[in-house]
Amino acid sequence: MLGDVIQPLKRRRAPRGSGEQLREEILDAATELLLETGHAKAVSIRSVAQRVGVTPPSIYLHFADKDALLDAVCARYFEKLDEQMQAVSDQPSSIEVLRAQGLAYVRFARDTPELYRIATMGEGRPGSDVDLTLNSSAFMHLRTSVEALIAEGVYPAGDATAMALELWTAAHGVAAMLVAKPYLPWGDAEEFADRVLRAVCLGQIVGGMIGTDVAPSDTVARLKEFAEGIHQ
């Protein structure tokens, strides 16, 4: 759960002058405060400094301002997500890799709901460390899987970035709803996430075969014809 993913947050006092260790202590303290308060606005440079046991100017030696500090916290969070998505990439086929990555994304969000909410649903700034981390981790994994499926002829030839964005949007939507509304009748959350992600993934495949410009009713008719042909 959260403790296995983000922890340990217990700080080890570093020798005086150890700048990198102090930076990690600052990030740990800011993460702790975010988890305790559940909101970035409740975290200040002064409160982080008090938690670490240093003066506010010591924080500014490592982070230009509060926004830079929070960006670094979120960037470290997405590095952990990157590790989780890499850990499930050993699958028998590209389509199973994509499925496992989507489920790992949703699972990570459910295990770390407070940080996920802050990192993905807060106000972002173009060019921030968070944007850079997203571009190099979760989204890149999905796009690489989509590119593999296109090369294999499973996915239609097209814009891999756009298709990966569709899948990422679905994964984020599922994760956000499970985090924000856990009390709704989802049933088994893992199975629910799998059904939604499977529907989007297969929808992209079917759309590539039949055509995205075909009316939904015509798509249903063609699929019925296909199913009847199989059973004849």
Rank of each mutant, 00 (worst) to 15 (best):
L34D: 00
L34W: 01
L34I: 04
L35M: 03
L35W: 00
L35H: 00
E36L: 01
T37W: 06
G38V: 03
G38N: 06
G38D: 01
G38C: 04
A40S: 11
K41V: 09
V43G: 05
S44Q: 10
S44R: 15
I45A: 12
I45V: 15
I45F: 13
I45G: 12
S47A: 14
V48K: 06
V48W: 01
V48Q: 05
V48R: 10
V48T: 11
A49V: 10
Q50S: 14
R51I: 05
V52N: 03
V52G: 04
V52R: 06
G53V: 05
G53Q: 03
V54F: 02
V54A: 00
P56T: 08
S58P: 02
Y60R: 10
L61H: 10
H62I: 02
H62L: 07
F63N: 00
F63C: 06
F63W: 08
A64P: 03
D65H: 12
K66Y: 07
K66V: 09
D67I: 09
D67R: 09
A68V: 10
L70G: 00
L70D: 02
D71W: 04
D71L: 08
D71V: 06
A72F: 06
A72T: 04
V73G: 00
C74W: 04
A75W: 05
A75L: 11
R76Q: 10
R76G: 13
Y77N: 02
Y77S: 02
Y77L: 06
Y77K: 03
E79T: 15
K80D: 02
L81P: 01
D82R: 15
E83V: 13
E83A: 14
E83W: 07
Q86R: 14
Q86A: 12
Q86N: 13
A87P: 09
A87L: 11
V88H: 11
D90M: 06
D90A: 07
Q91C: 00
P92N: 02
S93A: 14
S94P: 13
S94L: 08
E96H: 14
E96R: 15
V97G: 00
V97N: 01
V97M: 08
V97W: 01
L98N: 01
L98E: 03
R99A: 07
A100V: 12
A100D: 04
Q101H: 11
G102I: 02
G102H: 03
L103A: 06
L103N: 01
L103K: 01
L103G: 02
A104G: 12
Y105A: 02
V106Q: 00
R107E: 10
F108C: 04
F108A: 03
F108M: 07
F108Q: 04
F108H: 05
R110K: 12
R110F: 06
R110Q: 10
